[in-house]
Structure formats: C-alpha cells, structure tokens
Amino acid sequence: MAHGEEEPNHSSSTQNHEPEKEDGKFNAKKVILEHISDSHEWHFFSYPSEGGYKDVALPLPCILYNDVNGFSFFLFNKLHHGSVDGYSLNAEHHIGRSDGEGFYDLSITKNVLAMMISSILLILLFRTAAKGYTARPNQAPTGIQNLMEVLVSFVRDEAAKPFLGNKTDKYLPYLLTVFFFIWINNMLGLLPGGANVTGNIAVTTTLAIFTFILIITGSRKHYWMHILNPPGIPFGVKIILVPVEILGILTKPFALLIRLFANMTAGHLIVLSFLSMIFIFAQMSPIAGGGISLFSVAFSTFIYLLEMLVCALQAYIFTMLSSVFISEAIVEHSHSEEHH
C-alpha cells in the first residue's frame, strides 16, 4: 500500500495488470479482490515492458490431488506456459482442469507461506523472550523479553484468568498462541504486499474450529443440561429455547470466525477502495486523480492507523471470547441454578 501512496502510476501498473490487458480500463473490484484473496504466487509488482507488463512474483509450489493423476507437484509459473498433469489456468487466472474433473488443492499458497513465515517469527521472538527467564531467573526482564512479557501477562490476566479461573493454566497455551498468531498475521497483512491471512475465511474457520473443539472436549454435564433442559423455564418456552440453545453451540464459534474475517477484510477493503479512487478518477482526468489522491491518501492513512488498533483489538476479542465460551462449557458445579 505504501508504494500505492507514493507512486500512484507505478502502483496502478502493479494492480491492474490483468484488467488492463483485457479492456484497458481500471477494474477496482478485480484489483481489490485480487489483493485480499489467496493466490498461488506472491505478487510484488509489475513493470512496463515492450507491449505489456511484466510481473515480479514469487511462484509458489502447487500440490494438487486428483483421482486420475494422483498427487502433482509443480511450481505455479509452469502453468503460464501450458498445462501440467491436466491442470491449466482458466480465464480468472485460477487453476482448473481441462477435463473438468474435481481435484483437491493442497498448495502452499501465499497465505500458507505467510502463516509459515509469521509462525517462524513468533517462534523466534518467543524463544528469545523465553531464554531470558532461564538465563536470568527472578530478575527484571530486559529487551524483547520485557515487551513480550507485558503482552503475555496481558493475555493471561485480561483474557484468560477472569473467565477460566483455576483452569487458566490448561487453556493458556492455546489462548496465547491464538492471540499472537492472529495479531502477527493481522499486522503482517497490513504491510504492502503482505498476505491477508486473517481476512481469509478458511483461516478464521480453522481458528474457530479449534475453539469449538476445546469447548466440546472441555464441556461438562452442567453445560449440556443448560442447553437441553434449561432449569426454571416453563415448558412452552423450552420448546423455543432449546433449539435456540442447540444452535447457540454452533453460532458462538461461527460468530468468532465471521467477526475476525469481516473486520480484517473490511479494513483492507476500505484502504484499497480509497486508493482505487485515485485511479478511477485519474482515468477521467489526471487533475481529478491528483486532487482525489490527497483525500484518498489522507483517509487511507487514517484507516491504516485505525486498522493497527483493530489488529490488536480483534486478536484480543477472539482470545477473550474463546476463553469466555470455554469457561461456560467447563463450569463444574451448577451455582447458576440457585439464581433461577
């Protein structure tokens, strides 16, 4: 995004590479969707070359499975030159099969690679921080340990302990991992050229499934009794309430996955939309484009700063709600029945 702000012309060539080939018009929807979607190559920029544009992109390994061919491994850029094992690029620049057969796509996509990079970063960061505790036990923290300690104790004391109480230690490793995984991927997604990992519904679905599994495996009889036979409720109401409660088992993790996905995607959409306005107006007249760029850059910078807050906030909300939902399920004794 930074290059979009500083060098609009160059950026436009990067972003609307494909649409310009088709009809020469800037297609904002396609540009934005390409930016926030997963991809089989990590696209950095394009530059004008004789008769068109050349891409600078890192081709990523494709791992595809099909009943006919079995597993196929190849780099994505091979498909630019023709079909491989019956796979070829379709009109939308996606992998398809010429024979129309179904296949499984297990490729290391941009998002997968981004997750691997952020995971390695996390491991390095926290490994360094953890060394401080073994090297200097019971001493004041220093350097990176100091920074991480604030965050770790924040998650422990604000997102886990108030809800999980004495069960905190059991779920804390998961909650910490999820918090930092979401946060670092949110932040890296904001970088120009970064992958929109947490704005991908598959990733948020997986995170929600993890929480859901923890809710179900940790649940006690009390939790299920409250859902299937809410105490102190008249029978007529129960007929309505019980199905709602049963749905609630699923809506809680569903809300988690939608919330994270929608927040992160919305942030990217707004920033990209503001920047796209520059090019839409520039097609009408260069002066309009120049004028609108002041407005666009100012607003997208503002949204960008807001997004940095949202990154931390969404990570916190996901973690906090996960521990709330888990804590509801693992309640052992039925103290709440006394209130009914």
Binding site: Y104, I108, L122, K131, T134, L172
Partner: peptide
C-alpha cells in the same frame, strides 16, 4: 487446502510455542 494447512501450522505452532515459549515464560 487452506483449512488443512492452517490446522497443521496451528497445531505445530501450539506445540512448539507451548514447549519452548509458554512454559518457560509462564
């Protein structure tokens, strides 16, 4: 595919971070 990869990465991350980071830090 992305769900599978995310699951693998998350499981690995939870395992590695718990062993090498969360336990000593906490």
């Amino acid at each position: 595919g992305l769900i599978i990869w995310t699951t693998i990465i998350l499981l690995a991350l939870i395992f590695i971070l718990t062993k090498f980071a969360w336990k000593p830090i906490l």
